[in-house]
Write a protein that binds this DNA or RNA. Structure first.
Lengths: 191, 191
DNA sequence: CGCGACGTTGATTTGCCTCAACGATTGTGG
DNA sequence: CCACAATCGTTGAGGCAAATCAACGTCGCG
């Protein structure tokens, strides 16, 4: 069973030949926890599809504080979209949380893939559309919900993440300090 | 001069026949200020390309507070991506700020257009990629900058908007109350 | 074992909100 | 074309959610 092809099949149907072609462009790899896949200043070349383990992306602000932008669990894609499409130096980190197995594809191969298998252009368009929606929803949540509401929403949306991600990263994703996150959790337990 | 075709030409090159075809799918229209183009509960059918005037999208939270999600100036597209791709009821408003002239296209026509002119699939993919980047940057700004920094960034990024958009909408976009926005502005003037 | 990263807890501070009152501007009906 | 209402922006007093700073216990790991 191929997780990537299954995922693609949810949106577009490929012939066996196209499937084989697609898989020739993606390359299997593994990374240990805490590996930095991309750091600010570098130009992003690769997009990762997670098979096992987790990756996160984050920025570091002028005060040295990390802000987690996204988590990629198995069956998710992750990259620095800004850098990869603009060909400019990345502003974010891509970092491995737990040991991961991935398929990766270079920007160049991705463009070639679009030419050879036009359905993949549709696949990625749909994927990116969903990404816009997710980003927008998160923006709305940050503007209109309290930290507590955002935490509860996160828990019900990604129950599995609670176990396997350090709490400080979840705090950062939600948009609060680790200290406040800890107090908030204690408060919720008392109910 | 056709603003829409010029915009498309920046990303993909169409033959005259394709250009003509594209324009058959977009329909010209005009709306008065304060017209509601979409409201929560409705299913979004249309994507708008602004020729003149401005449109904004916003949500209203459980306390009745508006949160501006985006402004669309001339040469920009706007819609409720969530509703239009999921075919579910919208969660946001699309509302006309100043009298606008637009080209609009239905979801159905857009899909047909992808079939007939595959280059348009690429065009919209690129557009949406840029949208992801913009959303991500706004998220980063909300997490790592003070309201004052966000305001200054907004001013330097969209100097023209300051003149033609009510301040309360700018305040909302930045993520503060109108009252606080007013005080912030006064504080900055003293420097 | 001992060090460093992680999580917890408490005291204090602060950025921004809420509520309320008041001019200024816009727009609208008589 | 004016009168009035409605909306908008401003200002002030007080309050709250979350940040900051600091101290301390715990765990995993070299």
């Amino acid at each position: 069973m191929n997780l990537l092809l299954e995922n693609i099949a949810k949106h577009v149907s490929l012939t066996p030949e196209e499937q084989e072609l697609v898989m020739r462009f993606f390359h299997y790899d593994e990374y240990k926890a805490k590996t930095i896949l991309l750091k600010p200043g570098e130009i992003a070349e690769l997009t990762y599809f997670v098979l096992d383990g987790m990756i996160r992306s984050y920025t570091v602000d002028t005060n040295g504080v990390e802000h987690v932008l996204s988590f990629a669990a198995p069956n998710w894609f992750i990259t620095d979209m800004y850098s990869i499409i603009s060909r400019k130096p990345a502003q974010q980190y891509l970092s491995v949380i737990n040991d991961v197995k991935v398929y990766k594809i270079s920007k160049e191969d991705q463009d070639t893939l679009y030419e050879k298998v036009p359905k993949m252009e549709r696949f990625f368009r749909v994927l990116i559309e969903n990404s816009v929606v997710a980003h927008q929803q998160r923006l709305i949540d940050n503007l209109s919900l309290t930290a507590e509401d955002r935490y509860e929403k996160f828990c019900s949306k990604y129950p599995a993440f609670i176990q396997c991600i350090p709490q400080k990263h979840i705090a950062s994703f939600i948009g609060v300090t680790p200290e406040f996150f800890s107090k908030m959790k204690a408060r919720l337990l008392k109910k």
